[in-house]
């Protein structure tokens, strides 16, 4: 599981040599790949273009079916100005961002020392604590969101940012990956630092953390994306519009009797932008960590 992302591009480049190949086969496979790619992309494009036309035309343009079904004849940014204007969607987006970012900070502040202690310290019950943390946090918190929401209401954490943030800070895979990475740091380094008089906290922050950027980025992404797409929890915990997150705000516009599909598509795209940017920039860190190779098997 030790993550070596930098070996990957080399492996990819080593793909089958451009040995003589039947052109027909390549052409057919390329066609297949293109058809599959377009099939996945098309609904997203339809949403994007739908958000740029008057709301009623999303369905209105279906018959007669033609290229105008996809491409607007009237282009407009009205949906977006309504979203950011009277619908207050900007506020919801900011709430989502705040909740996700603070969750990342708290989540790392919690997971890094835990993973460090579980890597370098020897104490009775270590593996048991490790299993408890990883398994406990790997069960999706949706599973116990309902009783937890009742508890949080008793604790007066409903309609608060703290209430939105707390359940998302624990992530089992984050702790697992961090420990996995920390184990790759030679223990002689830590011993040398101890001889030099460094304490554990200093060793962790100055030695282990800088050597583990991949695992840190990966853990941050896991926590961020978990919170960004959270739906059930804010649905149960928050009724105050001012504190509501973007995912629920979109669902609200969908359930309203008078829907405007253009606005809904605009909202759905807006909440996809942040994960899209993060994942496209950082996908290496994301993919490498979770399911690693069969090579070592």
């Amino acid at each position: 599981m030790a993550v070596h992302p930098s070996t990957r591009p080399t492996a990819a480049r080593g793909d089958r040599r451009p040995a003589p190949r039947r052109w027909v086969g390549t052409a057919l496979l390329t066609l297949l790949a293109a058809v599959i790619g377009v099939a996945f992309l098309l609904p997203a494009v339809w949403m994007l273009l739908g958000s740029l036309r008057p709301g009623s035309e999303v369905i209105g343009s279906v018959s007669p079916l033609g290229w105008r079904t996809l491409v607007p004849d009237t282009w407009t940014l009205d949906n977006y100005s309504a979203l950011f204007g009277q619908l207050g969607f900007g506020r919801s987006l900011a709430n989502s961002l705040l909740v996700a970012l603070v969750s990342v900070l708290l989540g790392l502040a919690l997971s890094v020392p835990a993973a460090y202690a579980l890597t370098v310290l020897r104490f009775p019950g270590r593996e048991g604590v490790f299993a408890l943390l990883v398994v406990g946090f790997m069960v999706p918190f949706e599973a116990i969101a309902i009783p937890m929401a009742q508890l949080f209401t008793q604790w007066h954490l409903d309609n608060t940012y703290v209430g939105l943030i707390l359940p998302g800070i624990g992530n089992g895979l984050a702790i697992f990956n961090l420990r996995q990475f920390f184990r790759g740091v030679p223990s002689s380094l830590r011993e040398a630092a101890i001889v030099d008089g460094a304490g554990e906290f200093r060793i962790m922050t100055r030695l282990y953390v800088p050597l583990s950027t991949t695992a840190l980025i990966n853990s941050a992404l896991l926590i961020f994306l978990g919170q960004w797409s959270a739906y059930l929890w804010p649905l149960l915990l928050v009724s105050d519009q001012e504190k509501q997150v973007a995912a629920i705000a979109i669902a609200r516009t969908f359930s309203d009797t008078e829907f405007n599909f253009g606005q809904m598509f605009g909202g759905a795209l807006l909440i996809s932008v942040v994960p899209a940017v993060l994942l496209l920039l950082l996908q290496r860190y994301f993919a490498t960590s979770i399911a690693s190779s069969g090579e070592k098997g």
């Binding site: 949403m47 797409s229 979109i250 759905a268 996809s272 496209l280």
Partner: peptide
């Protein structure tokens, strides 16, 4: 193929 998985489940549901 990867683009849709940046869309949260609520967005996919709406679409």
């Amino acid at each position: 193929v990867f683009v849709p998985c940046t869309v949260p489940l609520v967005g996919s549901s709406v679409a």
